[in-house]
Each structure stands twice: as structure tokens, then as C-alpha cells.
């Protein structure tokens, strides 16, 4: 069909799967879960119950035969479920402000 604006395209509301659909949700956090890797048995209960999900077992990590649990702080909202459910009680919820101080210290 001849038309001047032939680059015209119908647009629709197609959202593509991507991480961070709501941005870096780590910014929502007031408490940060910190894992005591010494105590951690790699049972992965924290991975199972993370609603984000932003905790995974890095099986490639050589520090332990089962690998290492890592938390993606870019997206972790700090809900604390992981700490609450951890059978070893090896996740501590630490105020974000503590880390701010550290980072400020580093800046200086």
C-alpha cells in the first residue's frame, strides 16, 4: 500500500524478560544479609526461599568443596527470609548504614 510514512509500525505493550525490571532493587534495602561462609553448610535453604531470587550457589568457587553461596546485592531487598530460615543461623542482617560508613571510609 503506497504511503509516505512507510516506516510506520504498530506498537504494542511487549515487555521483554530482563533482570532489574524495577531497577536496582538493592537500593530498597535497609538491612543487608551477610553470610558467615565458615559456618555455612551450603544447604541452599536460603536459595530455596529467596523471593527475588538473588541468592545462588556458585559451584565453581573453590573455597569449599560444594562451592559458595553468593548474594546479588544489586537486587537483594533485604527481606531477611534467608537469615530467618537458615538452619545454621549463619546469616546476619546488618544495617546498610554500617556499609555506608565503610564505603565513605574507603572514599576518604
Amino acid at each position: 500500500m503506497p504511503d509516505a510514512k512507510d516506516d510506520f509500525k504498530v506498537e504494542t505493550w511487549n515487555s521483554k524478560p530482563a533482570k532489574g525490571s524495577a531497577g536496582k532493587t538493592g537500593l530498597w534495602r535497609t538491612f543487608r544479609p551477610v553470610i558467615n561462609h565458615e559456618k555455612c553448610t551450603r544447604c541452599e535453604i536460603c536459595v530455596l526461599f529467596c523471593p527475588e531470587p538473588c541468592i545462588e550457589l556458585d559451584q565453581e568457587d573453590k573455597s569449599h568443596k560444594k562451592g559458595k553461596i553468593i548474594i546479588d546485592y544489586d537486587y537483594c531487598k533485604g527481606c531477611g527470609i534467608c537469615a530467618n530460615e537458615c538452619p545454621q543461623h549463619c546469616i546476619d542482617m546488618i544495617k546498610e548504614t554500617e556499609f555506608l560508613k565503610d564505603e565513605e571510609k574507603e572514599d576518604k
Binding site: N14, S15, K16
Partner: peptide
């Protein structure tokens, strides 16, 4: 896969 008509 696309998600159609979510929040905008």
C-alpha cells in the same frame, strides 16, 4: 516470551 500489557 513477552509479557503483554503489564504496568507502564
Amino acid at each position: 516470551p513477552v509479557t503483554h500489557s503489564s504496568l507502564a
